[in-house]
Computed example of a mutant assay.
Amino acid sequence: MISLMRRGLPALVLAALPLLASPASAGTPTTPVPTNELPFTSYAPPQAPAGAPGSRVVLALFDAIDRLPVAEEHREGYQRTLYKHWNPGLNAADGCNTRKEVILAEAVEDPLVEAGCKLSGGSWRSAYDSLVVTDAAKLDVDHFVPLAEVFDSERTPWSAERREAYANDQGSADTLIAVSAASNRSKSDKDPADWMPADGTYHCAYAATWVATKLRWDLAVDDAERQALLGTAEDCTGTTVTYQHVP
């Protein structure tokens, strides 16, 4: 995960798949859409490949938004338990699960870590509302794109393993973020069409992180979400999105 120093904004570390393949050469049969493909209402304009899976891609915010396919959401069947979290983290031996590892990584002042990953002291800055938090128990570790929104946006139904990988993703600086519990509860499972951070100076970074996380995990946006992101981008000249696709 990241510290707030690494969450230097607006350049954000994210990852994503070039969502549409290059145009097929003349006479080459096209690959049929899988039978379990979820219904799409439209697609983003075709884009040239932005790099192989795992490669680092940097785009202007508007260009990154254009790489997101547009589709209706599909909430039916969602359960939070479909996304197993928190797992033992990157170092199971230290007793800190993914949640605690994110909190430790994002500390402005490091807390004392006692047996069983019990934290005391330390300080954090909650990016959503610019609050300084000095008690780790008052932090939530938020999935930047909420789990329910991920379910809504899966282009094809994910496996249990992929869902767990998203729910515990520490390979990106942006998938998980430690914020004040109050701001996380305010956000809930809303997308940018329905919620933006109270700290207006964070809006460009928030939009860029949202887009990059969706690109990293090959997730769609609905039309209202896309329009909200485009509206925010109007005030974000120079904001870039950096991402790496998860295969």
Rank of each mutant, 00 (worst) to 15 (best):
V113S: 13
E154D: 05
D110A: 12
T41M: 07
T239A: 02
P39K: 02
E109M: 05
A136P: 06
S126E: 01
L68A: 10
R125W: 13
R125Y: 11
V241P: 06
E154V: 08
Y78E: 02
A148E: 08
P34V: 14
L119C: 06
A115G: 11
L112F: 00
P88G: 08
T237Y: 03
A64G: 01
L61A: 01
P69W: 02
L229E: 11
V13F: 14
Q170A: 10
D169L: 03
A93N: 11
D142A: 00
T175W: 05
S172D: 13
S22D: 05
L90P: 11
A107H: 14
L104M: 12
N97S: 01
D135M: 11
L112Q: 03
A181N: 08
V211A: 05
L61F: 01
K100M: 00
M5G: 08
M196D: 04
G231I: 02
T237D: 01
Y128I: 05
A228K: 03
S3N: 07
V211S: 05
V108M: 12
P46K: 07
T237C: 00
M196T: 12
E76F: 10
A26N: 01
D169V: 03
T213H: 08
K118Q: 11
M5S: 08
S188H: 13
A181F: 09
L14Y: 10
V141D: 03
L139W: 03
M5W: 07
Y206K: 04
A208Q: 03
I103Q: 08
L104K: 15
P111V: 06
T237E: 02
H245C: 11
A233M: 04
A26H: 01
G95Y: 06
E225S: 02
Y78L: 01
N87A: 13
R155K: 06
G116A: 12
T98V: 07
Q227K: 10
K118V: 15
T156V: 15
C236A: 02
E149R: 06
H143A: 10
K190L: 08
N87V: 09
A11H: 09
R185A: 14
D174H: 05
P88H: 09
P69A: 03
E234M: 04
P49G: 12
L104F: 08
D218P: 12
W158R: 13
A24C: 00
T213G: 07
P46Q: 07
A16V: 10
L176K: 10
G122F: 03
T237H: 00
P111E: 01
F151Q: 14
K138R: 02
F144H: 06
E72G: 14
L4G: 02
R155N: 01
Y166E: 02
H143G: 10
A167Y: 13
P247M: 14
K190S: 12
T134K: 11
L112G: 00
D169H: 04
N91M: 12
N97L: 00
A48P: 10
S183A: 13
P49R: 14
